[in-house]
Design a protein around this nucleic acid. Structure first.
Lengths: 197, 197
DNA sequence: GCCTCCATGTAACACGTTACATGATTCG
DNA sequence: CGAATCATGTAACGTGTTACATGGAGGC
């Protein structure tokens, strides 16, 4: 139930058409909630039907014609309530950690190269965020909205830094002398808990 | 395409029935790839049909009767290939960051309490991981498999630490003198980029 | 016999992903 | 007028989520 709220947020920041939203997602909200244009059109339809947004009257409803949306009071209320209520954090779901776990069973072939590749990608992303931070959040301009948006960006920065740190640790570790022998014995005991419980 | 591979990994570690898998997921693989029993049964069916696993002959196929699976050579091959090939990291998708962004538009009511709550949850999870680390990865026992599994766990530990750090930073920041005034002006400019580009 | 727990499963829906279809506008 | 681009959409599918259904085994 997050995409509709992401869209409401974006529309409150600035009324837009579907494609405009898509592009704006790609360079800001989409960093922590990506969405394709198909998802966005689908949600815009639902939000309009639910009476949370409406198409600006200026636009004709013919196909291929730009259609701008704005948030209605009910939409703002819905967003406010969603943003202020409790919501548990969603558990992590990460394929790289999983593949590492698989490598413990079927062998580490190709693993080191993959870790290096990911390390590089995360460094690029971090550089990207750093550039945005320099550009958009210079000292001063200290409004409440900006502080909050800055915090979100710093979340992204910390997250990329986490990956970089961990990947470097992992590369060091699997590079150590005896750590690169091939597939281990089958039938070893349970995942994180060889000692039970 | 990750759940089937998570299941193959778990089954290689130890042949199991659906419920056993579910329980083992809950305390190890599920930390970074959660799955409910319904998902697991569904995938077990697909994997069996695809010829990657098979039910152990000892078990009868009546409803309500335990059914154990083991991985076939084709399954191991599939897992090996999946674990060694390239796969781009999936972009982040996090509701708390999103809600913070929304709060920049509709106001910060309830935000601080929610941040504290999350902080607490992440501290608990970190404590949990720390306990597992102490129990399962004492110095020594330095096989390749254990090193890899330890690295995965350390990934979880780093990740929780990231959240704790960031949440503490956020709480400090929104606690600062002028940062808690109510809803900001509507119609402010673009998300991360008030200055454009 | 009844309740509880173990175990396997069905059904329906929500959401994300990918590929493709179609109309409008602009520019050479 | 033809091609490229902008813009909105359809369709089909994979996976995750939630609620519920069914059968067997053991204890009281």
């Amino acid at each position: 139930m997050s995409l509709p709220h992401a869209i409401l947020t974006a529309l409150l920041e600035k009324p837009s058409s579907g494609l405009e939203l898509t592009r704006r997602f790609d360079k800001s909200i989409g960093f922590f909630w990506p969405a394709t244009h198909q998802q966005i059109y689908r949600e815009l339809g639902k939000l309009e039907q639910a009476g949370l947004i409406r198409a600006l009257p200026s636009a004709q409803p013919t196909r291929g014609q730009k259609k701008e949306y704005e948030v209605l009071p009910a939409g703002r209320a819905e967003l406010t309530s969603w943003a202020s209520g409790p919501q548990d954090p969603k558990p992590v779901r990460d394929a790289l950690l999983l593949r590492m776990r698989a490598a413990a069973v079927v062998g580490t072939e190709g693993l080191e190269a993959e870790l290096r590749r990911h390390l590089d990608l995360h460094r690029q992303q971090l550089a990207h965020y750093d550039a945005i931070e320099k550009r958009d959040f210079p000292p001063g301009k200290d409004t409440t909205e900006n502080r909050l948006r800055h915090l979100v960006l710093r979340g992204g920065i910390h997250l990329e830094s986490f990956w970089i740190t961990w990947l470097e640790e992992a590369l060091t570790e699997i590079g150590r002398p005896d750590a690169l022998r091939q597939p281990p014995s089958p039938g070893s005991d349970d995942p994180v808990s060889p000692s039970g419980a």
